[in-house]
């Protein structure tokens, strides 16, 4: 397996915006829609995904020369499942209430396409440093996406941000925003906004 490809810095930066897992790759939609009703749950999920993604990428990169092509997906899944179980147990130990609130969505990180995608695209082909940078960039990008959606939903739906009141008492909470339709609406609008900004920037750079 070759180690050619983007450098560690490039991988990191790409994960933030140009290859943002949610807004550009449309991956990891399950937690994006399910746990963005509030900032606390969204950031806990982002943290858990970051832990699993970084660990899985680093380990996969370390064993990349031993991987058999037809067994690689099995190895990725095994690796991801192990780290997800650890994350789940640590949350239940250290943040029990949050663990209860997130319910099945922490175990469901196992099937989060962002992680298996990064193992396949980067970690199984590049060095540990590049794989770790890639995981860090993608994790931050994923956290930014979750934070943007959760912020809109929590502020409009509950009038709070991280549980603290930011809207006036008279604010009529938009109940739909904390419900599943609110997640789809917010994601759709923010996705459209991201595309529009991308298109405008592309147009400007083309004009130059």
């Amino acid at each position: 397996m070759a180690s050619d490809g983007p450098t560690a810095g490039e991988r990191f930066l790409r994960g933030l915006i140009p290859e943002n897992p949610v807004y550009r790759q449309l991956l990891g939609m399950c937690p994006t829609l399910a746990v963005t009703g509030g900032m606390k749950t969204a950031m806990t999920m982002a943290g858990a995904v970051a832990f699993v993604l970084i660990c899985a990428n680093v380990l996969t990169s370390l064993i990349r020369n031993l991987l058999k092509p037809h067994l690689r997906i099995l190895v990725f899944t095994l690796t991801i499942a192990a780290f997800v179980t650890i994350a789940d147990r640590v949350l239940a130990y250290a943040m029990y209430d949050m663990s209860q609130e997130l319910g099945p969505y922490i175990p469901l990180i196992i099937v989060n396409c962002v992680i298996i995608c990064r193992c396949e695209v980067c970690a199984s082909k590049q060095s540990v440093v590049v794989a770790a940078s890639d995981a860090a960039g993608q994790s931050i990008g994923f956290a930014m996406a979750l934070a943007s959606i959760a912020a809109v939903r929590e502020i409009l739906g509950s009038g709070t941000f991280f549980g603290l009141r930011v809207m006036p008492e008279a604010w009529p909470n938009w109940g739909i925003m904390v419900m599943p339709p609110g997640a789809f609406l917010t994601l759709g609008l923010l996705l459209g906004l991201a595309n529009w900004i991308g298109a405008v920037r592309e147009k400007r750079s083309g004009a130059v």
């Binding site: 064993i63 031993l66 991987l67 058999k68 067994l71 099995l74 190895v75 095994l78 690796t79 499942a81 192990a82 179980t85 650890i86 147990r89 640590v90 239940a92 130990y93 029990y96």
Partner: peptide
């Protein structure tokens, strides 16, 4: 490799369980 990883992860998870289960 799969077998080795499975055994290693199994041992690691057993360790995590032993360390955290009382607290959970």
């Amino acid at each position: 490799l799969v077998l080795t990883l499975a055994v290693s992860f199994g041992a690691a998870l057993a360790g995590v369980h032993l360390a955290l289960n009382d607290g959970i």
